[in-house]
Each structure stands twice: as C-alpha cells, then as structure tokens.
Design a protein around this nucleic acid. Sequence first.
DNA 1: AAGAGTATCAACCGCACGTTT
DNA 2: CAAACGTGCGGTTGATACTCT
Length: 543
Amino acid sequence: MVESDDGVLSKDQMDSSLVGKGKDKGTIDGVVLKKGPWTSAEDAILVDYVKKHGEGNWNAVQKYSGLSRCGKSCRLRWANHLRPNLKKGAFSADEERLIVDLHAKMGNKWARMAAYLPGRTDNEIKNYWNTRIKRRQRAGLPLYPSELCMQVMQEGQQCSNFNGINDANNGFFESSSGQIPDVVFDSLKANQGGFSFFPEHSDVSASSLLMKSLGPPQFSSFGPGALIRQKRLQESIYLYSGFSGNPKDAFSSSNPFEDGRREKIARSLEYSYHDPVEENSLPSFDAVQGSHSFTNGFSSAPGPIPEALGLELPSLQYIETDMGSSWDTSPSPPGLLESVDKLIQSPPRSVKLDSDCPSPCNNGLLETLVYEAKTLSSAKNQSSDKSSNSSAPTPGDISSSSNIYKTEWDDYGNPISPLGHSATSIFNEQTPISASGSSLDDRMHADIFPVSNVKEEPFNQFQSPEREQKFPTQYEYTRPDALLASSGWFGLQSDSMAALLGDDLTSDYKQTAEAYVSIDQGERMDVYSWNNMPAFCQISELP
DNA sequence: AAGAGTATCAACCGCACGTTT
DNA sequence: CAAACGTGCGGTTGATACTCT
C-alpha cells in the first residue's frame, strides 16, 4: 500500500477523499470523510488524539481532531498500525505454528487468535492465513501439519468412552475461547495412508450449498435466527474449506475445471452440515449412540454449535459438549481408523432415516439432494401425497445425517489440487444453468447439485488389488463416487433428477454422459456429464 | 526487458452485537 | 421497547511489490 509519508495525497487519495457516498455515508456534519491510505500527518493526528483521549470513542476523533476519517477507519488504523507494541514484519516460525494451531482450534476467529499473538493484529493473521491457504493450495499440501492431526487423533482415541452427555448450553462457545480441544483431524494422509479427514482447504461451500438447496419453504421451521446461523455456518465452511468467501477465488485455479474438481466435489459430499435449528435448540445429542467416531454434522452437533468447533471444526472433529472439560469427556471415537473401517464396511444400501444413527454413511449433502430432488419431483407431479417423501430424508432426518469425510485427493489424483472452489460456483460455472436465476427454481438448479466429479478411470480399475493394497482403506473415501456409493445415497429417480435440472437439462446431461460405472453390490452409477466433464452421478440398483 | 501472474498488505464494507438514549 | 449509536469482527477489495516466463 502506498502510504504517502510526506502527507501528500495521491490521486486515489484525492479521489477517495472526495467520495461521499450519499447523504450520510462519507460525510460527518458536512465534512467529507477521507478514504484510502493514511498519511503520516493523519497518523500523527490520530496518535495525538489517542494520547489525549485514549482509545475508543472513535467517532469523536473527527470532531476533536479534525481528522477527516470515520471512526471505523480511525480505529482500524490505530489498531493495525499505530498502537504501541505492534510487531511488524514476517511471522516467526513459532508464530506461524501458533497460528496454524489456533486456526485449527478456532477457525477464522482472527481477533481471538490475535489475542494469542502479542503485537499481531487480526488483520495480519487473516492475511497471513489467506496467503498460506493459497500457497498450500497451489502446492497441494495439507493445510495442517500431520503431527497436529496425529496428536489430535491420539487424544481422540484416548477418550473413546464418551457417552454422549449433551448440554447444549454449557458454554461451549465461551469455552472455545480458551479451552478448545486440540482436535483436528487433518492431513492424515502422511500418517494414515493418505486418509485425511480434514480438507486442506476445499472451497466447497457445502453448507451454503445445502442451505441454498434446502430452500426456505422446506425449512421454514428453522425459525428466527436461521439466517444468522446460516452465516455462521458459512463461516465454518470457510474454515473447513479455506474458502476465502470471495467468489473470485472460487475459480482462481489456473485450471479450475481440472484442478479443483475432484476435491470440490468430493468435499461437497463430505462436509458436515449442522442443522441450524439443532444448533441452538438443545437437540438430542446423537453421539449418545457413541458408536461412531465421526461426528455427524447433523445429529451429534450439540445444541449451539461452538462457533469455533461446532461450526468450524472439520466435520470429523468431535463436538465437544463440555468445553470446560478436557477432551477426556469429548464424544470420542472408538478410534478413527476403526471407524473408517466400519464405515467402509457398513452397507451403503439405504438412506437411513432414523436420526439416531449418526453413521457417516449418510452423507448429509447427498441426503439433502435426494430429499430435494424428491421434494421437487413430488411438487412437480403435483402430488399431494406427502408420503412420497417418505423414503427421502426429511429436514429432520437430514439433521441426523452424517457426512464427515474429509478426503485427500492428492494421493491418487491431482498432486496439485488447488481447491478453493465452491461447489455451488462450480456448478454454476460448469453447467448451463444460470446462476443468476432469482427464482427458487433457478437457485435450486444452480445450487443443488454440486458437480459430482467422478474419477475418469473405471471404477474397477481403481479397485485393483494393487491399489487396494496400496491404499487399503482409504480410497473408498477418497473418491467422490466411493463416497456416493457408501453414502447410502442411491436411487435418485430420474424424475427427481428431471425435477431438479429440468427435463431438458437432464436430457442434455444424459446425452453427454461419458461414464457408466458399475459398482459392486448390485448398484450402478450413472455419471452424467456436461461439456465432457462429470457433473453429477446417479446410483441405482442394477436390475 | 517487459508483460503476466501471483503475493502481500492496508483499508473498506457490511453485519452483528452490546450499550445508550 | 425500540431506535440510534458505538464498536468489533470477518470478508473482500484494490494497489503495489514481487516473481516468473
């Protein structure tokens, strides 16, 4: 940033100084507020003001000092640049470690993280993190060091006797500021044969996608505050995904079609979704079942999802129900790998409707999609028979879905897999569906289907003994199609598909279908593509 | 050397929340 | 009780610096 040390306004500064947005914005008592880079003269004025009046009451700065800056700008300038004891320069290795650790615990809580880094500002940390994400995206590296994951895993395994005490209002949120379980399942690849629960930074905004796809009508029962929670939910996804939130970033990859698709799609199927209602409404804690080590985003999210963990922890993190306690009381998994095996082995035959099964086999997104598809289909057929949805997860059911698989594609796919894409955006971009549609239908079309990227290689090839030996258990969950197959999602009827995409679109997809993958257990997967790119898949039972 | 692409960083914006009026 | 106000936070933007081709 150019900062005119001489206090001379640059052109932009001059321009921005003249900007007055409307009657109220940009002016105070008729004084045009300046924007843009601060000059040293302004800094001096601000410092002087703070010396005399102390911090706070920033809106009075202009009044008392004549500085033509809004209070917010003054506060920001002071906090980020002028206040004493600010540490400038690059982060030290220790600081970087701490940031990674804190981010694993807190998510995008920059201000809170800054509290642990004396002399550093939230803005610095945020910038550093975003930069780091991009860097690692490019490198195809995991976002969190594997040691951290292993540490977390070990801790998690030590507390496998969790019996699911649920106290939704136990101040989990509050505790998160200080005592956050070091549970981050990330980048297990290095230590666990490539299985990673934690996305490096997939930008699949699964939750937002879900929220969009769920749509208001079906989920009006979310009640007041749902929007707020939705926002928080989105934030959480950013943590998981590293999604900057910037739509532009969604396709920042040099080859978004190729580089990010796998992970995008895979992760679109993996992210846990926390029912906005359940989040704050003291839901039953399905972890009581305790049989699954993986937190299912829906059911085991206890009440108010911890802002850092409940919402922002990776799906595989256990939702701590008592933040005051240590991890000893956390809903603990009977061992992650064991659970993985269980999950892999568990029959993905049906969509389990019972909310008491937190089996991660039920992918929340998938179920949601099925549900939506059927709902739409049902609506389309103008059927008044509500039971038509009986085989599909209801919102409540969805809330019990689990879906916590973080996959690591790097091992078998793209070594360089910049994620950074939102499924929604992908879909919007890669399908002929207008993303700008304003109608619900349009949004459905645009948002409901992430581009389910299916590996181009034949499925059975992937299951070759050699590969299986190489990746004993991991691959089942590192493939989106495997996720699909194991998710219990199947039988998405063509009419449902049509309802979602429109008959014409479905037809288009079919016309360009490039893969027709048979999988075991009497199912088949039809892969629909568009523009020669896999767009989504449909699993159905073989005759 | 020049242009393109990427990284970095400061600052802005909108929103949420708590407090005051 | 509601509106206004002040503050803080997180996401985003845009300009410059840097690197690569």
